[in-house]
């Protein structure tokens, strides 16, 4: 029983990190038709800058941790906004070239991170409470998972409120459905493109800091590894669907945890799930619609 609870909660915690990466990916794809290979780089950049800040302010203090979250989100947001504005937007409406640009950027920037921070993983530490465990139903759950879950829920609620309550949110929801009709109403969707990259980048940067705590290290490949699972999550959840991304994140991560524990092949279970979804529901669990 305690094992099941542990796997379940750590799975949801991992799902929270997947969601932070996948939410941006899914919205970017839904609105712009771009598969953003550079999304992992936003995450890694956030994780490294967050780590640098925490190290300077005292990695084991709460202030240092809070600052690393803030800086991580900010770093991801700024990097993403610049990427959209100066690279992706130059190739407006040319989706494949946009994908290629993000592939090239990811390659170059990961190499640059290698050069700056070295290829070896940096082991990190946070406030002591984070690495302790809390006992729930007999299971000793690492506290950092709770932080990840809470923050992912906060991000989810924030994005939903943004999409539902603001004019730009409305433009993004409409644009995911039918971008050309939005422009035919006199709206310049390019602003919405930059905005969605910025939001996605911020979530990824935040996810980077949380992932580095959950895994205990940060390395230049951190984002690339998570990116592949985030891709799988977005396909399973339905490209462009925020709710789908949230459900699929948890589904994939929990499945992965259980399969890893009982069978040893968590990654395969995820790929099999992907194959099953693609065969039975090619448009994913929630299809192409932002229902929030």
């Amino acid at each position: 029983m305690s094992t099941v609870v542990l796997l379940l909660i750590t799975g949801v915690g991992l799902g929270a990190i997947y969601f932070l990466v996948a939410s941006g990916l899914s919205l970017i794809y839904g609105l712009m038709g771009v598969l953003n290979f550079a999304h992992g780089v936003f995450l890694t950049f956030g994780a490294f800058l967050g780590w640098e800040v925490a190290a300077r302010m005292g990695a084991t203090t709460w202030a240092g941790f809070a600052a690393s979250l803030l800086v991580g989100a900010l770093a991801g947001a700024v990097f993403a906004a610049l990427t959209e504005r100066f690279l992706v937007q130059r190739l407006y409406e040319r989706h494949i070239e946009q994908v290629l640009i993000t592939v090239g950027l990811a390659l170059a920037v990961v190499a640059l991170f290698d050069g700056i921070w070295g290829t070896d993983a940096r082991f990190i530490s946070g406030p002591p409470w984070m690495s302790r465990t809390t006992t729930i139903a007999g299971a000793n759950v690492p506290n950092d998972r709770f932080v990840a879950i809470v923050l992912a829920v906060v991000v989810l609620v924030a994005i939903v409120l943004f999409l539902q309550r603001t004019r730009y949110g409305m433009i993004i929801r409409a644009g995911v459905e039918n971008r050309s009709m939005v422009t035919a109403l006199g709206i310049d969707v390019r602003t919405a493109f930059t905005l969605i990259f910025t939001i996605g980048g911020a979530a990824a940067g935040l996810g980077g800091v949380l992932a580095s705590h959950a895994f205990g290290y940060v390395s230049p490949m951190l984002g690339q590894t998570l990116l592949i699972f985030a891709f799988i999550v977005t396909v399973i959840g339905g490209l462009g669907s925020l709710t789908g991304a949230a459900i699929a994140s948890v589904l994939v991560a929990v499945l992965q945890q259980f399969a890893n524990y009982y069978w040893g092949y968590g990654d395969f279970a995820v790929v099999v799930l992907l194959a099953v979804v693609v065969l039975t529901r090619p448009s994913g669990l929630m299809g192409k619609k932002v229902t929030a």
Binding site: V103, G104, L105, L107, A108, A111
Partner: peptide, 10 residues
Amino acid sequence: PLFILGTLFV
């Protein structure tokens, strides 16, 4: 090298 190749590609 991959930084230069990636940049070249972009």
